[in-house]
């Protein structure tokens, strides 16, 4: 989250670069020669029908899945050529929010957030938990939430707590897998705003897999559409919405797409 970015990255160079990515499970090909760039400081929304490989793409970028072919580089370093140590250092600069939160059920919320601080940086417990409480407050959780177990949280609180954990090490890149799925519209809208606030304050780069049209309209700078095993188009919303493709048309100009567009316009004017 350091807002000045240094290191091997040149200005104008993408922070994540995916080239010729191939993923197949047995006979089933999910990605075929997929290219994608994510620029520093942007919020990129990744959309696509169910089974189009959005989550698989996220998993191969963060290194949970070894792609069958192609290369992924992040922060100027190529993932498959890194030594174990450098890879761990690189992974520490990414935060991931899983779809179900994936909070450790044996720890309370504060301990969940403090865990990476204690393990990676050997901070003393009191210090780590203090920093964790700051993170929890940043994502808008009330102070008492820190002492609760993950099973005692509501859906929205789980997402926020998981976001706080993803932010624990002040990452440069944040990966979010359907962060607003299962939230009520008010909670989802608040989450979108939170995302914008954090991005503006910390200069985060956000890779966002979503189904939520409202999130696309309010929070995303660019949108990448996954279709036919590769990225069909990746550009600003207005360009993407004009793309001549049946799925894109149905998606953005269907009844839900139209209402999300209207809502976004109304919010912007207000």
């Amino acid at each position: 989250m350091s807002e000045r970015r240094e290191g091997p990255l040149e200005p104008g160079e993408p922070i994540i670069q995916v080239r010729g990515l191939q993923n197949r499970f047995g006979e089933h090909v999910v990605h075929d020669r997929l290219d994608l760039d994510v620029m520093p400081g942007e919020i990129l929304g990744v959309v696509g029908g169910s089974g189009s490989g959005k989550s698989v793409l996220l998993r191969s970028i963060v290194g949970l899945l070894r792609p069958s072919g192609g290369e992924v580089s992040m922060l100027g370093e190529q993932l498959d050529q890194l030594s174990e140590r450098r890879r761990v250092l690189l992974e520490r600069r990414c935060g991931v929010l899983f779809q179900q939160g994936a909070l450790f059920s044996s720890l309370n919320v504060t301990q969940n957030v403090a865990l990476p601080l204690r393990e990676h940086l050997q901070l003393p417990r009191a210090e780590a938990e203090h920093l964790a409480e700051v993170k929890l407050a940043l994502v808008g959780l009330p102070p008492h939430a820190g002492r609760l177990a993950p099973s005692e949280l509501s859906g929205g609180m789980i997402k926020r707590a998981a976001l706080a954990r993803a932010l624990a090490l002040d990452p440069d890149i944040l990966f979010l897998d359907e962060p607003t799925a299962g939230l009520d519209p008010i909670g989802a809208a608040a989450f979108d705003q939170l995302l914008l606030t954090l991005r503006n304050a910390f200069g985060l780069t956000v890779f966002l897999v979503t189904h939520d049209l409202d999130t696309l309209y309010t929070a995303c700078d660019r949108i990448a559409v996954l279709s036919g095993k590769r990225v069909l188009v990746a550009d600003t919303l207005s360009v993407v919405a004009q793309t001549d493709d049946a799925w894109v048309r149905d998606y953005f100009h269907g009844p839900r797409g139209r209402s999300a567009q209207l809502a976004a316009h109304a919010t912007r004017e207000a």
Binding site: V134, A137, P143
Partner: peptide
């Protein structure tokens, strides 16, 4: 300044010292 302000807001909600 945005970073400072955001974290200050968060700190307001946390009791200062553990």
């Amino acid at each position: 300044r945005a970073l400072l302000r955001t974290v200050c807001d968060a700190l307001d909600k946390v009791q200062q010292q553990p």
